[in-house]
Structures are given as structure tokens and as C-alpha cells.
């Protein structure tokens, strides 16, 4: 309703609470974290300041950059693996399964998101251990024992626990929405099955796939549980670095530096990915 500008109490009742709430409890924390990256710690006490000492200290150290590149590498690797491993399953669910079966499969894959990630990780710990379930099973057929914990393998298994269900769900939903008649048309024109996937299905699902890969990357990049418990944190990832500096050293300002570097990286990756996802194919207008 327009007319003379009056204060619409009704509208503000629904609009204002969230603004105030998020300003105090979301924007506040994030901005304050940026602020404390310039604070200094003296005698185990954080004091307000505006100095670049934390930035200098973190960004000139080899261990930070080792950790940075390692995290970037292992998160990208696990996102790639998740996408590749998920694809055949998603393809089957999207094109070979009935609507009802697909709906059930997606629902079942949502369940893990509501179960304790910690308990699942602990379960993997027991399964993958030197004398654990998997090695015991392999032992029956004369293999192993393999060292699966405290390795990149362990870390990636942990990441996949987190990301694989999501990758399958997003890929399935994306491909299920591809217009089936286009695929039939391609087959009808003599396109072989694998060529159909490559030339029809993937280009049409590009946006969904990039978003799925992005989510997998974000989840792995920010997770500290898998590299800590299953990877043994020999090579600490950035989240482990934050955890250690905050929990043990009380060095919040330095942890803030790491966190800000992580957020900058995440935003860069996210914006690049989204720009790629929504880029118009070559030769199209507009």
C-alpha cells in the first residue's frame, strides 16, 4: 500500500527482528573476527590494537603455506573423487530408476546429514584400524593388513562420508531434470550411449554439477574432523590450524588470520565456480 509514507508497524514486525538478530549474532562475529586479526596477544591476554603482526607472522611462515596448499589440494582431490564416484550411481538413479525409487534413494541419502558426523567418523576409525573390521575381512582372503588410518586415504574417506551423499543427490536431481526427449532425439539420430552422456547430458547439467562440486569442496575445505581423526593430522589442514591455535595457544588473532584466508579462498572459488556455471555457451546470444 502506497500513499503518504507512514511507518508500517506490521511490515516492520516481520522484517526487523532478523535484521537485528543477524547483525548482532552473525555480522558482528564475522566483523569482529576480522578486527581481532589486528589485535595483539600479550601475556596470554588479547589486547585491542591495530597491528599487522599476526598477518606478518602467519603469512611469512612456511608451515602456514604448506598447510594452505595441502588443504586446497586435498579438498579439491576429494571433491573430484566424490564427483567421479557419484556419477555412475547418479546416472543410474536419474535414468534407470523409477520416480518412486529415485525419491526413496534421495530421501535415504539425506539421512546421513542428520546423523552425528563424529560418530560416523569414529565408526570409520574402528573399521579402518590396523586390526579393524576391514583388515580382518581382507585377512580372510589373504590380503593386508593395510595401514589406512593416519594417511591421506583416511582423510579422503572421512571427507567422502561428508560429501558423497550430497554429490549423488545433487547429480541425480540435476540429471533427472534433463529433458528426456533430448536424449531420445540424440539416440534416434545415432548418438552412442557414452557420446550421449558426453554431448547431451553433461552440457545440460553443467550448472548443477558445478554447484555440486563446489559444495563438496566447501565441505571438505572447512572440515577438521576427518583430517584430525582419520588423517592423523600429520599434515595439518587449515581448520586444524585454527583449532590448535584457538584451543591450545589462546592465539585467537592468529587463528583469525587463518580463518580470513580461508574465507577469502572460499569466496574466490565460489564466485569463479558460479561464474563458470552460469556462463552462456559459446555462440549463444545475450
Amino acid at each position: 500500500m502506497s500513499g503518504p509514507r507512514k511507518i508500517d508497524i506490521y511490515a516492520l514486525t516481520w522484517r526487523l527482528p532478523i535484521i537485528l538478530w543477524q547483525l548482532v549474532f552473525f555480522i558482528g562475529p564475522v566483523l569482529f573476527m576480522v578486527a581481532i586479526s589486528f589485535f595483539v596477544v600479550k601475556n596470554y591476554r588479547m589486547t585491542e590494537a591495530f597491528e599487522f603482526v599476526n598477518w606478518q607472522r602467519m603469512l611469512t611462515r612456511g608451515f602456514f603455506w604448506d598447510s594452505y596448499w595441502y588443504t586446497l589440494f586435498i579438498a579439491s582431490l576429494s571433491a573430484t573423487i566424490a564427483m567421479l564416484v557419484a556419477f555412475p550411481a547418479a546416472w543410474a538413479l536419474a535414468f534407470r530408476a523409477s520416480d518412486n525409487l529415485r525419491r526413496w534413494a534421495v530421501f535415504l541419502l539425506i539421512i546421513p546429514f542428520f546423523t552425528s558426523y563424529l560418530v560416523r567418523t569414529f565408526s570409520w576409525y574402528v573399521i579402518l584400524a590396523e586390526s579393524g573390521v576391514l583388515n580382518a575381512m581382507l585377512g580372510y582372503i589373504g590380503l593386508g593388513p593395510f595401514r589406512m588410518l593416519n594417511s591421506h586415504f583416511g582423510t579422503i574417506i572421512g571427507y567422502l562420508t561428508l560429501t558423497l551423499p550430497l554429490a549423488v543427490i545433487l547429480q541425480t536431481v540435476t540429471m533427472a531434470n534433463v529433458d528426456k526427449t533430448l536424449i531420445e532425439a540424440a539416440r534416434n539420430l545415432g548418438c552412442k550411449p557414452f557420446a550421449t552422456i558426453w554431448r547431451i547430458v553433461l552440457p545440460l547439467s553443467k550448472t548443477g554439477f558445478i554447484v555440486a562440486a563446489l559444495f563438496c569442496f566447501i565441505l571438505a575445505f572447512g572440515d577438521f574432523v576427518a583430517p584430525f581423526y582419520l588423517g592423523g593430522s600429520q599434515e595439518p589442514t587449515l581448520p586444524i590450524l585454527i583449532l590448535d591455535t584457538t584451543k591450545s595457544g589462546q592465539q585467537w588473532p592468529r587463528a583469525a588470520v587463518v580463518a580470513i584466508m580461508m574465507m577469502v579462498t572460499l569466496f574466490t572459488v565460489a564466485f569463479t565456480a558460479i561464474a563458470l556455471a552460469y556462463r552462456k555457451p559459446k555462440g549463444s546470444k545475450g
Binding site: 564475522v30 573476527m33 572440515d223 585454527i242 585467537w252 583469525a256 580461508m262
Partner: peptide, 10 residues
């Protein structure tokens, strides 16, 4: 982990 740090500090 970032949310946790930011929340704790704030």
C-alpha cells in the same frame, strides 16, 4: 570451524 572461532571471539 570459522563460525565457531568468530562466535567464540564475539
Amino acid at each position: 570451524i570459522i563460525m565457531a572461532l568468530a562466535m567464540l571471539a564475539w
